[in-house]
C-alpha cells in the first residue's frame, strides 16, 4: 500500500485517510476499536501495513492491534467480495432450515463458508443472529435483509446481485 514514488516523504491516500480517522477519535478513551471499525469501513479490510500504521498513530503495540483484530469476527485481514452474503445461523433460522439454504449457496457459488468467489463479487459468510427471527430463515447482503427464505430463493438472490455487476 506504500507510495510508488519511493521518495519516502509522501503518503498514500489510504494512510492519509487513517490520519483523518485517528484525528476524529484522538480524544476518546479506548479509541482502538472505533478506529478499526472506521478504517475497515473505508478500506474494506485491515491488511498488516494498515494495522501497523494504526498502532503507530495510536501509540499501542502492533501485537495489541493484531490481537484485537483477530479476536473480533467482524474484522477481516483479507479482502472481501463486493457483495457479502451473510446467512444467519441463529437458532430460529437453524430450526427453520438455514443450514440447507447455506448449503445451496455453497453449491451455486462454488465456494465454502468464509470464501470469496474468484471474480471477487461475492463473499459467503455465516453470521450470528440478526434479530429478525420472526422472518427466519434470513440473510443479509451488505445492508439488505432477505427473509422467509427457501432453497428455491437462492438463485434469485444471486442473480439479483449479479445483475448489479453488469
Amino acid at each position: 500500500m506504500s507510495c510508488q514514488c519511493e521518495c519516502g516523504t509522501c503518503k498514500s491516500p489510504q494512510f492519509e485517510l487513517i490520519d483523518r480517522i485517528v484525528e476524529t477519535h484522538k480524544d476518546e478513551q479506548g479509541a482502538l476499536i472505533p478506529v478499526l471499525h472506521a478504517a475497515q469501513e473505508a478500506l474494506g479490510y485491515l491488511p498488516e501495513d494498515v494495522q501497523a500504521y494504526i498502532a503507530e498513530k495510536l501509540n499501542v503495540p502492533l501485537s495489541e492491534v493484531y490481537g484485537v483484530v483477530s479476536f473480533y469476527s467482524l474484522f477481516s485481514i483479507v479482502p472481501k467480495g463486493k457483495y457479502k452474503i451473510s446467512v444467519c445461523l441463529g437458532t430460529a433460522c437453524y430450526v427453520k432450515g438455514a443450514g440447507e439454504v447455506m448449503a445451496e449457496f455453497e453449491k451455486q457459488l462454488g465456494v465454502k463458508v468464509g470464501q470469496t468467489t474468484e471474480d471477487g463479487h461475492f463473499t459467503l459468510e455465516g453470521c450470528r443472529c440478526l434479530g429478525c427471527c420472526g422472518l427466519a430463515p434470513v440473510l443479509v447482503v451488505n445492508d439488505n435483509i432477505h427473509g422467509r427464505l427457501t432453497t428455491n430463493d437462492v438463485s434469485d438472490i444471486i442473480n439479483k446481485y449479479k445483475e448489479i455487476k453488469q
Binding site: L89, G90, T91, A92, C93, R128, C129, G131, C132, C133
Partner: peptide
C-alpha cells in the same frame, strides 16, 4: 450486545 440467537 444482544448476542443470544433468537432474541431481538
Amino acid at each position: 450486545d444482544e448476542g443470544d440467537p433468537g432474541a431481538f
